[in-house]
Design a protein around this nucleic acid. Structure first.
Lengths: 254, 254
DNA sequence: GTAGTCAGATTGTCCGGACATTTGCATTGA
DNA sequence: TCAATGCAAATGTCCGGACAATCTGACTAC
């Protein structure tokens, strides 16, 4: 009986284009990722050793390793010294991204809508000043938005932004999400500190979200940083838990 | 006037021990991380080019790059082509880990306690079977624990585990957290899928957590996978939001 | 039969070099 | 004065090789 586990990459049509400006390791990692996504590389299968794979593609081993490493970082592959590289065997799909409520809803086919209720400049409170690392009392933008899906209120979003970063056009804010606006303004989002909790709705919150007073609400506070580490946004959001929950995929750092 | 921004790593006492079994790139990244943590490398400062740093330490450039890259992945450094490598300029500390409530509480100095209320084997419900990828009705472990801090109930934790993975000793469960038990049993935790929401407490939940019926509760459902992608745990947890909230640090994938 | 040993396979670490690409700044030109 | 050009500096990509560490499985010795 022949060994059933043959290197599955030999039957894969892997090719790299050396004239392309796309880095070789990236071309390879994309093709491998597509093969995993498509099912050509089944979970649990061994990838075949790096040396041979490099030889077959006409690449050096470091380049192949770089491609494989990027997929390991994404959680799609697992390497074991002395054994080989294996496709992870799970329902795992996307790692975890800086979630944008607008994008989340749109991806779920919910056709989100936004109503801008407040768009003004206010002096920073102590809390906001600390979060954005600006002087207390200095000017910051304050926007309040009601996010709806299918005409039903889903979340009430209060955000503060440092001045001069973005011009906040109300029409644009109603047409898309804040993160998308910031990205298109050339801001590179880097990380965010989030705190998720729950509490009963105050009378004002209840009315905004069409809930009863004291009804459970999901709350999130978030400070977002760009790639230089400066705070670019502070948000204080409340969600209707019957309509929304936070879905994460966490990866353990090795 | 001399240029004020001198390479700050020259004044750092960086050394590597080639006789140590610890990889050189790891020794270097640890020292750099410690310097950032300690404040010797101030936010915004440039690190000085890789070539010179490699020469000064007697290392090759790939090794230095590997050390720097690991800190970039952690979000502590930013590289800019044509510019240099810079210390990120923020309050960012730890990226984000697969959070263990027990460890979180212990780190916060809260002296957690655990009361195991149920520790038995039950047939898997449809939901549990789907989460753990076992046959519906097959045997799974079921444990229910009340987590307390300073004698006050904080969370009620229901967990399901596939059979044969771990022997669940009630005494051990009361002395430490589930994740720590799994790790010490040789299980390599890899990723987890989480869903965080909120709802009003049922009468039974209210009594367990010493809250009123209908009081807001924070809920988390989680499936944890090991490095081969197999589900090793499914949890259904409820938290008292006045006592606990989820704190995250998210990194954007470049 | 069982435990210990050894060899092969595979990934992990490290080197030294080469060229490409991007950025910032100084110089040059209109 | 201001814009375009060119140069230097830094990271990004890629190569080919070497040896170490670890896992698996087969073989050997008891």
């Amino acid at each position: 009986m022949p060994k059933p586990d043959v290197d599955p990459t030999v039957s894969l049509d892997l090719r790299v284009d050396r004239s392309s400006p796309v880095p070789l390791y990236f071309q390879l990692s994309q093709q491998l990722e597509a093969a995993i996504e498509h099912g050509s590389l089944t979970p649990g299968s061994l990838l075949g050793n790096e040396i041979e794979l490099a030889a077959r593609l006409g690449l050096s081993r470091p380049t192949v390793r770089q491609a494989i490493q990027s997929l390991v970082d994404k959680g799609l592959l697992v390497r074991r010294r002395g054994v080989g590289t294996q496709v992870v065997h799970s329902q795992v799909k996307r790692p975890l991204e800086l979630s944008s409520l607008y994008d989340d809803l749109e991806a779920a086919g919910q056709r989100p809508a936004t109503k801008v209720l407040v768009n003004t400049v206010v002096p920073a409170s102590a809390e906001v000043a600390a979060a954005l690392a600006v002087a207390e009392g200095s000017d910051v933008h304050r926007i309040e938005r009601l996010r709806l899906a299918h005409g039903e209120p889903m979340a009430y979003l209060i955000n503060f932004l440092p001045p001069g970063l973005l011009d906040l056009d109300t029409n644009q804010l109603e047409a898309t999400g804040l993160y998308r606006l910031m990205r298109s303004a050339g801001i590179t989002l880097h990380s965010a500190r989030q705190s998720i909790g729950a509490r009963g709705a105050t009378a004002a919150e209840a009315e905004r979200l069409a809930e009863a007073e004291g009804a459970p609400l999901l709350t999130m506070q978030r400070t977002t940083f760009d790639d230089t580490g400066r705070a670019v946004e502070f948000g204080d959001h409340t969600y209707r838990p019957t309509r929304y929950s936070f879905e994460f995929q966490l990866l353990v750092r090795p």
